[in-house]
Design a protein around this nucleic acid. Structure first.
Length: 506
RNA sequence: GGGCCCGUAGCUCAGUGGUAGAGCAGUGGACUUUUAAUCCAUCGGUCCUCGGUUCGAAUCCGAGCGGGCCUACCA
């Protein structure tokens, strides 16, 4: 009678019958070996016979992922985080307990004791003695061969993806390894890891719409941060010379394969260095992380050229890249109207009321960025696009900023940080004028930050790297949703994912 | 936000106007070294939702919900 509700009812019945013997949800279990440790111990001992005096006795725990029952014997697969080990139950050994095996289902967790042996087909196996259910599952496991392939189910119920798909586990582990390697790189270079506020009076440091929330006791609105920049700079003012933070930031924008409303950002600031220094550090950082997590600097891709992450990376300038790949010099188009006319000529769609800088960036992302498959630094951005970066000494219209592109994606963004409080105030004023004109994605005046700057901030090089994008790059995944365990999705059926609720009274 | 595509059993999928199907999972039976175990039998459906066309709709049309891809903003 297996509709979903009936499958659950059957398992509830089995749970009730187990309860007559023993609690199927004990708080304490016994475990001497993981699946992998059992295999290692068995090999180290010279694969002793399971019935001899030198047999290796183990307690293993894990989830039942396969059952092959054949009359008076049964083979189960037991899976834990280290891998899989086979269990062999025999009627003549188990006695009455053998019948209780019918109360176990795929997905249940078991604790099993017994001696290790190798079957005649060569499979490492526990000759099961005492065993018990340590967690009874009420819902069926995904199909054993195809697993879960439905993208929506895989993201809404990521645990099913993790149970069924080795690739999902691999990505999750690699992400942890990447964040760990990045953190190690910075701490090894004497950077101090800090924590700055998520809830802020002003959401600054980037051009994006923020989330707004409300503090009841203080009775005022607060913003969720959109970047880490302005507080890390306050720490430079405070006298720390090398700081970094790896943390979530929040942007109230669209959701798609490349964007999630919350994502993980790395930012670092180092006093007394410029963006050239930061560029060399980024080369070193990416080489280090790739080597640590992938064991190679090459990123092989299907049907596409291999990406080489070895330093030095290619370099160009914003102006030079546009000249080369878009075929014009932006200095020849100094006004919005001129640039807009050019955009029309090139069939580049331009939003109503877009600024000069926005249109220019449109050229950049459409005609130039996709060309940078191999790691390429683009130096010296127009000042208008970069209100927090220091102007170039010999060129007022450009700032000391670079972005790093790999596989057509922006991976890193860095400046020689603007530390002239007068220039900073003027640039924020300029942004404020744009805001007044209706542009929602501009830097707003943060008076508290300006006051900090006015106390003196040392020259410094700053860096930002989107960790999710970096994970995408190093795993070769095409969608951000694959590298974020629980990406944002629309609400559906009040959290039941369209599934029936279990009802113990049914 | 716009365009295109998709939604069928717990899972993976067939079915494109005429009685809703398969494999796995489940249930019952056979089977003491199997490993996608095998064999026999069997249960299981708001065909995403609502409305329309039709003698008749999973199938055609419309709207909605959810998802995917492309596109626009953003990282």
């Amino acid at each position: 009678m297996p509709s979903e509700a009936e499958l659950i009812a059957q398992r509830l019945e089995k749970r009730a019958r187990l309860l007559e013997h023993v609690d199927p949800y004990p708080a304490r279990v016994q475990r001497t070996h993981t699946a992998a440790a059992a295999a290692a111990a068995f090999a180290a001992a010279g694969e002793p016979d399971g019935e001899g005096a030198d047999a290796i006795a183990v307690f293993v725990v894990g989830r039942v992922t396969a059952q092959r029952i054949m009359g008076r014997a049964a083979f189960f697969d037991l899976t834990d985080a280290s891998g899989r080990i086979q269990l062999h139950f025999r009627r003549d050994v188990q006695g009455d307990a053998f019948e209780l095996l019918s109360l176990t289902d795929l997905g249940d967790f078991l604790e099993v004791s017994g001696a290790l042996f190798r079957t005649r087909t060569g499979e490492l196996t526990v000759a099961a003695g005492q065993w018990r259910v340590i967690a009874k599952a009420l819902r069926p496991l995904p199909e054993k061969w195809h697993g879960i392939v439905d993208v929506e189910t895989r993201t809404r119920q990521r645990y099913l993806d993790l149970i069924a798909n080795e690739r999902a586990r691999e990505i999750a582990r690699k992400r942890v390894a990447i964040v760990g390697a990045v953190r190690r790189f910075f701490t090894d270079h004497d950077f101090m890891e800090v924590e700055t506020p998520v809830l802020q009076e002003h959401a600054g440091g980037a051009a994006a719409r923020p989330f707004v929330t409300h503090h009841n006791a203080l009775d005022r609105d607060l913003f969720l941060r959109i970047s880490l920049e302005l507080h890390l700079k306050r720490l430079l003012v405070g006298g720390f010379e090398k700081v970094f933070e790896i943390s979530r930031v929040f942007r109230n924008e669209g959701v798609d394969a490349r964007h999630n409303p919350e994502f993980t950002l790395l930012e670092s600031y180092e006093a007394y260095v410029d963006y050239e220094h930061v560029a060399r550090m980024v080369e070193e950082l990416l080489s280090f992380v790739a080597q640590e997590v992938n064991g190679t600097l090459q990123l092989a891709r299907e049907d596409a050229e291999t990406i080489e992450l070895s330093a030095p990376f290619a370099r160009t300038t914003y102006r030079g890249a546009l000249r080369e790949h878009a075929g014009f010099d932006y200095r020849d188009y100094p006004t919005v109207d001129a640039l807009r006319a050019l955009a029309r000529e090139r069939d580049l769609p331009v939003a109503e009321g877009a600024s000069w800088a926005t249109i220019l960036d449109g050229f950049m992302s459409t005609f130039v960025e996709p060309r940078f498959v191999q790691p390429t630094f683009v130096f010296d951005y127009p000042t208008e696009l970069s209100p927090l970066a220091k102007r170039k000494v010999d060129d007022d219209g450009a700032v000391e900023r670079f972005e790093l592109f790999i596989n057509g994606y922006e991976i890193a963004n860095a400046y020689s940080e603007l530390n002239d409080p007068v220039d900073q105030r003027m640039r924020m004023d300029e942004q404020a004028r744009k805001a007044a004109a209706g542009d929602e994605e501009v830097e707003l005046i943060d008076e508290d930050f300006l006051i900090a700057l006015e106390h003196g901030m040392p020259p410094a090089g700053g860096l930002g790297i989107g960790i999710d994008r970096l994970v995408q790059l190093l795993t070769g995944e095409h969608s951000l949703r694959e590298v974020i365990l629980f990406p944002a999705l629309r609400e559906r059926d009040r959290g039941t994912h369209g599934q029936v609720r279990s009802d113990p009274r049914a």
